[in-house]
Simulated scan of single mutants.
Amino acid sequence: MQSAVTAASEATSGTIEASKKAAEQAREIAEDNIEAATSATNKATQQAVEKVRTPTKR
């Protein structure tokens, strides 16, 4: 009985650790995606501002 409880406890601990690692990886990916989206938005905004500031030739 004791060995069954120990095995179940170890399996649970392993599952918890794997879940923590997966959650950390998901958080890192989300942060990277947010940074990339922010960078792209900032670049597009800067380009739009430059177009407005640059006088057009007629």
Rank of each mutant, 00 (worst) to 15 (best):
A48Q: 15
K57A: 13
D32A: 11
A11K: 13
K43E: 15
E28A: 06
A26F: 03
T15M: 00
A23P: 04
A11S: 15
Q47Y: 09
Q2K: 03
I34N: 07
K57E: 10
E50C: 04
A37L: 10
K21Y: 05
K43L: 15
T54F: 11
Q46K: 09
I29K: 14
T38S: 12
Q25G: 09
E24L: 15
S13M: 09
A36E: 12
N33W: 02
T54Y: 11
K51R: 13
A26G: 03
A22M: 10
E24G: 04
T56Y: 06
A30Q: 08
D32M: 10
A37I: 04
S9P: 01
I34D: 09
T15G: 06
A11C: 08
S3E: 11
N33R: 10
E28G: 05
E50K: 12
M1R: 05
S19V: 13
E24S: 14
G14R: 02
R58M: 10
S9T: 06
T56A: 06
A36K: 05
A4W: 00
R53I: 14
A36Q: 13
E31I: 05
A18K: 10
K21V: 01
Q2M: 11
V49I: 15
A23C: 08
S39H: 02
T45M: 07
D32P: 02
S13K: 12
A22G: 08
A30W: 01
I16V: 10
S3Y: 06
A30C: 09
S9D: 08
I16S: 03
Q25K: 12
E31T: 10
D32R: 11
K20N: 03
A48T: 14
T15C: 03
E50W: 07
D32N: 08
A48P: 06
